[in-house]
Design a protein around this nucleic acid. Structure first.
Lengths: 212, 212
DNA sequence: GGGGCTATGTATAATGA
DNA sequence: TTCATTATACATAGCCC
């Protein structure tokens, strides 16, 4: 019966540690659920642990579930297009860039062909005449460096994706100033990682991968 | 002094709800921190709430912090390339595709120009002769539909990004079968969203945007 | 609004089945 | 190993300032 005052340290006994993890995880889920109910918060929680192959997943019936249900009603292809915010965004950018590229390509080819043809025709007409002096083309056709089409944007596709997802200012601050984190304590022992993420849903839900 | 047995329902009083949220959020953070310490779990937690402009951020000094510190030591450009897993991946794909496009474009143009020129030369040479019958080009130059270059991959860039990040099987299952979620209760009232995410860090940390 | 207080409800460590 | 029990530590609702 609860004797110790909870020595706040790593539990070295594997069995005891696992037991504690399961109990406390259960308590955590309950707490999170209560917070959701009491404060009117739509919630989505995923808890992945080394002790269970499947993670615990919580989500409410309002936002996420409704969206997921919509996705399920979609034809497979449409769904896969819409599934991920970033995907549709990048698709749009690629499509747009490809259209521009196609158009520019066509223009370039037409102008260059016209030039080449005129030049050859001139040469053919002057076959018996002395060869003309080396001729510098007065106005070379506008040229788009194809390989750099995507680089012309000051921002990369992913930058723009992040923008579109309204990556909040705090994230930038946080990435740049990890030492400023008030909550940063040296708990943790290098085995597992947990992310607790809470965001209001009139903003886009945001998250990303941190690791190379 | 704590009378009620906590009526598990939405707190209609704005002020009381906010107070409860702050108290319980604090408790939740403590619980999560304790779980981290006791069970040796590296932790990263972000709590974004409607009541605070800045989210609470917890992270341990081992995994995430070390990685962030490495990033900070990098030159700015390198860092921006490495910062986001997906970004570097997509950069690679765009660069590769652009190179292919450039090469193909060059080939196409050369072949088509040669054809056009030969055709016009033939026409010029036969100016006084009856016009040749309409001529079908025997072997049209290999043509790559430029607008579809990115679509040639069976998988989209984001699909591949997801693959590269080792999107776990459970996520697919979860996306496809939201009704199976054991933990799904109808808490939540449609205002906010919280994500609690826990993953061991020998896998890639994973997460993504769910909303269009 | 925020911080402190305290009675009370809740979570859970230790134990035993 | 997991489940149930129970004493105790902990979290927090309601108040006050």
């Amino acid at each position: 019966m609860t004797r110790k005052k909870v020595k706040l340290a790593f539990i070295s006994n594997d069995c005891a540690r696992k037991a504690t993890f399961k109990k406390r995880k259960k308590g955590l889920i309950k707490k999170v659920s209560e917070l959701s109910t009491l404060c009117g918060i739509d919630i989505c929680a995923i808890i992945y642990s080394p002790y269970e192959s499947q993670p615990d997943v919580l989500l409410d019936n309002h936002g996420v579930h409704r969206v997921l249900a919509q996705f399920k009603r979609m034809p497979e292809m449409e769904r896969s297009k819409k599934m991920v915010n970033q995907e549709s965004f990048i698709r749009q950018r690629i499509s747009k860039a490809s259209d521009q590229l196609k158009k520019q390509h066509k223009e370039n080819r037409e102008k260059e062909i016209t030039q080449e043809i005129n030049k050859r025709i001139d040469e053919l007409k002057k076959t018996t005449a002395p060869p003309p002096p080396p001729q510098q083309v007065a106005t070379p056709p506008p040229h788009v460096p194809i390989g750099n089409l995507f680089m012309q944007e000051q921002k990369s596709a992913v930058d723009l994706t992040m923008d579109a997802m309204q990556r909040p200012q705090w994230f930038t601050n946080w990435m740049n100033n990890p030492s400023d984190h008030q909550q940063m304590n040296s708990f943790g022992h290098g085995d597992e990682m947990m992310l607790l993420f809470c965001e209001n849903n009139h903003n886009k839900m945001w998250s990303n991968a941190f690791f190379p």
